[in-house]
C-alpha cells in the first residue's frame, strides 16, 4: 500500500521525522504464521534484530498486525530462554536481538505530538468522518497499553482526537471499535464482505471512512467494489490517517497519495 507509506512519510517529514526503511524485512506473520507455528516469534525477532542493527531504538509501524506481533515478540524476548533460542537462530545470519526496540504505531506517534501537530494544522477540514480504531494497536491492553495515552483498550480515543485536530467532525456510528473483518477474507471471503457491508451501512451519515490500519483500508477501499456490487449507493470514500492529517496540514494531495481533486 504505497500511498500509506508515502502519506506517512510526508506527514512525519513535516514534523521533522525522517523514516529509514528496514531492508530485507520479512512479513510480520500476523496472524498467519502464528496460526501454523509457535515459532512465529523468531520471525518477528528477525525483524526486530534488523532494527537493532540499524541502531534505532524505535520502529514505526502503520499496520495493526505488525504493531501487535512485533510488540508481543519484543515482550516474549524478555524471557531469557526465548531470547537465547532467537539468537541461536539469528546467529547464522550475523544478527542478534535483545527485544529492547520500542514498537510505535503511527497513531500513537502522532498522538504523542498532539500539541505540535495542532500548530501545523493550517487548513482545517470541514468533513464528517467515521473512524475505525486499529484493533491490534490497542489490544490486548496488558501488552499493547503500555504507553501514557491512558487509552481504554476497548474504546481508545487517540485516533478520535487526531481526527478532531484536523477540524473534521467524528460521526458516531457504533462500530468505531468493531474489527473491519479484513482478516476474515483469508478464511471466508463472503463473511469478510458482509462485515465490510455492515460497516458501510452504518456510516452513511459520514463523508468518509478513516483508517489507521492497512487491513481496514484493504477491505473497505480496495475491496469496496465487491461489497457494494449490488448496491452502489453504499459507496464511501476511505482515507488513511496520514492522508487526512496531511490534508489539514496543507500538504500537496499528490504527496499524500490522493489524486488531486478526485478523492472527495
Amino acid at each position: 500500500m504505497p500511498e500509506y507509506e508515502a502519506a506517512t512519510r510526508a506527514v512525519l517529514r513535516a514534523l521533522g521525522i525522517e523514516l529509514e526503511i528496514v531492508q530485507e524485512a520479512v512479513c510480520c506473520g500476523s496472524p498467519v504464521v502464528e496460526s501454523f507455528t509457535a515459532g512465529w516469534v523468531y520471525l518477528a525477532a528477525y525483524n526486530l534484530a534488523l532494527v537493532e542493527r540499524m541502531g534505532h531504538g524505535t520502529v514505526v509501524t502503520v499496520c495493526g498486525g505488525c504493531t501487535n506481533t512485533l510488540t508481543r515478540a519484543a515482550r516474549a524476548l524478555q524471557d531469557p530462554d526465548v531470547r537465547a533460542e532467537a539468537n541461536r537462530r539469528l546467529e547464522p545470519l550475523g544478527l542478534s536481538v535483545t527485544g529492547q526496540v520500542e514498537v510505535k504505531h503511527l497513531v500513537r506517534l502522532l498522538a504523542g505530538r498532539e500539541e505540535e501537530l495542532r500548530t501545523r494544522i493550517i487548513r482545517p477540514l470541514s468533513l464528517h468522518v467515521a473512524l475505525t480504531n486499529p484493533c491490534q494497536v490497542f489490544r490486548p491492553g496488558d501488552v499493547m497499553g503500555s504507553d501514557d495515552s491512558g487509552d481504554d483498550p476497548m474504546e481508545p480515543q487517540s485516533l478520535r482526537r487526531l481526527v478532531e485536530l484536523t477540524g473534521a467532525e467524528v460521526v458516531e456510528y457504533g462500530g468505531e471499535d468493531e474489527c473491519c473483518g479484513a482478516t476474515l477474507y483469508l478464511a471466508d471471503p463472503s463473511l469478510a464482505l458482509a462485515a465490510g457491508r455492515r460497516k458501510l451501512e452504518a456510516v452513511q451519515g459520514a463523508d468518509l471512512l478513516l483508517h489507521g490500519c492497512g487491513n481496514c483500508q484493504l477491505l473497505l477501499r480496495r475491496f469496496q467494489r465487491l461489497i457494494i456490487r449490488d448496491e452502489p449507493g453504499l459507496r464511501k470514500q476511505a482515507l488513511l490517517l496520514p492522508q487526512l492529517v496531511g490534508l489539514a496540514m496543507g500538504l500537496p494531495e499528490e504527496e499524500l497519495g490522493l489524486r488531486e481533486g478526485t478523492w472527495r
Binding site: 496460526s35 484493533c135 489490544r139 476497548m154 483469508l186
Partner: peptide, 25 residues
Amino acid sequence: VWLCTSCWRCQEACPGEVDIYGLMM
C-alpha cells in the same frame, strides 16, 4: 477456529481472563 480476526475484543472483555487468542492459535 479459522474465522477469528485477531481483534482481541473477546479476550479484553472476558471477566475470566481466559487467553482466548492463545487457545485459538
